Simulated scan of single mutants.
Amino acid sequence: MTDTSINSQASTGDAGFGDFFSLLKPRVMSLVVFTAFVGLLAAPVDVHPLIGFASILFIALGGGASGALNMWWDADIDRIMKRTRNRPIPAGKVTEGEALAFGSFLSVFSVVMLGLAANYVAAAILAFTIFFYVVVYTMWLKRWTPQNIVIGGAAGAFPPMIGWAVATGGISIESVLMFTLIFMWTPPHFWALALFMKSDYHEAKVPMLTVTHGRKATRTHILVYTLLLAPIALGAAFTSIGGPIYLAVALILNALFLKGAWDIWRRDETAAEADSYRTEKKVFGLSLVYLFGHFGAILMESTLAQFGMGGW
Rank of each mutant, 00 (worst) to 15 (best):
A248K: 00
S240Q: 11
P231W: 12
K259I: 13
V249K: 02
T226N: 11
A236F: 02
L234S: 04
A248T: 03
L251W: 00
L253I: 04
S240A: 08
Y225P: 10
P231Q: 12
P244E: 02
G243L: 01
L229S: 12
W262G: 06
L253V: 10
T239Y: 04
Y225I: 14
W265D: 13
A250I: 02
F257H: 07
N254G: 11
A233L: 08
L247N: 01
A250C: 06
D263Y: 13
Y225R: 08
T226K: 09
S240R: 06
G260F: 05
A250Q: 03
T220M: 10
L256S: 11
L227S: 15
A230R: 06
A248V: 03
L256I: 08
K259N: 11
L251Q: 06
A250M: 04
T220P: 14
F238K: 12
L253N: 02
I245H: 00
L223F: 13
K259M: 07
L228H: 06
G242D: 08
G260L: 14
H221A: 07
L223M: 09
L229C: 05
Y225V: 07
L227I: 10
I245N: 00
I264T: 13
G235T: 08
T239Q: 05
L253Y: 04
A261E: 11
L229Q: 13
L227F: 11
A237K: 09
T239D: 14
S240K: 07
G242Q: 15
I252C: 08
A230E: 09
A236L: 12
L227K: 12
L223E: 08
L223Y: 11
A236I: 15
A255N: 07
I252W: 03
L247S: 00
P231H: 07
I222Y: 05
A255G: 07
T239N: 02
L256D: 10
Y225N: 08
L228S: 15
A261R: 15
F257S: 05
T220S: 15
A233W: 03
N254R: 13
D263G: 14
G260N: 13
W262M: 15
Y246T: 01
A261K: 11
S240P: 14
T226I: 06
L228K: 10
L258S: 10
P231G: 14
F238Y: 14
A255E: 08
L258T: 09
Y225M: 14
I252H: 05
T239C: 07
P244C: 01
A248E: 01
K259F: 15
L247F: 03
G260E: 05
A261M: 14
A233T: 03
K259R: 09
L234A: 04
A237P: 11
W262H: 14
Y246K: 01
I252F: 07
A255V: 12
A233V: 13
T239M: 10
A237M: 05
L256M: 08
V224K: 11
G242H: 06
L253M: 08
L256H: 03
I264V: 09
L247M: 02
P244H: 00
G243S: 03
A255Y: 06
F238D: 14
I252Y: 04
L247Q: 01
Y225L: 03
A255F: 06
G260V: 11
